[in-house]
Design a protein around this nucleic acid. Structure first.
Length: 148
DNA sequence: AACGTACACTTAT
DNA sequence: ATAAGTGTACGTT
């Protein structure tokens, strides 16, 4: 199938998505828009709905390296919650630092919710900007609380 | 192929 | 506050 691309709004940012069917190849945050459509799940998520991207699959979880297993673990952390780099590291028998690197190179944020991974003593980073990470966490917490 | 460096971390001084 | 330990990727020999 042909690979599609497009973007949708998230706050001051746009999220660009390259996908084909339920395969997600890449998602990047950008200040500028990009013509085309994105899967409905992204639109729902950006609108503040609780969205688990359950039906989507990221190419990254299939990586044959340790990154693949890290991404699979990260996918399991639930909407509105956060875990530490160290906890993920423990599950796949590697060091927290490696988890950090895997997050930095994550080709598909949101589908693989790297924004829910924080440091034990600090917030951790996010590319292109930690502000995004923070607003994602805040947004998720808010919608989760609203559900109660 | 080897080597050095850079990290979105953690734990112990 | 600082240093040492850590694993992987990546650029440069």
């Amino acid at each position: 199938m042909e690979v599609m691309s497009g973007s949708c709004r998230f706050g001051l940012w746009f999220v660009h998505v390259w996908w084909s069917g339920d395969q997600i190849f890449q998602v990047v945050f950008s200040k500028s828009t990009l013509n085309g459509t994105v899967p409905a799940a992204f639109i729902r998520y950006c609108a503040g709905k609780e969205e688990h991207f359950q039906s989507m699959e990221s190419v990254a979880t299939g990586y044959p390296t340790i990154y693949g297993r890290i991404y699979q673990e990260v996918r399991k952390v639930p909407y509105g919650e956060t875990v530490t780099y160290g906890e993920i590291a423990g599950k796949v028998a590697t060091s927290p630092r490696v988890v950090g690197q895997a997050m930095r190179r994550n080709p598909t944020p949101l589908v693989i919710p790297c924004h829910r991974i924080v440091g034990k003593h600090n917030f951790g980073g996010f590319t292109p900007s930690p502000e995004i990470k923070e607003s994602l966490i805040v947004m998720e917490k808010k919608t989760k609380d609203r559900r109660k």
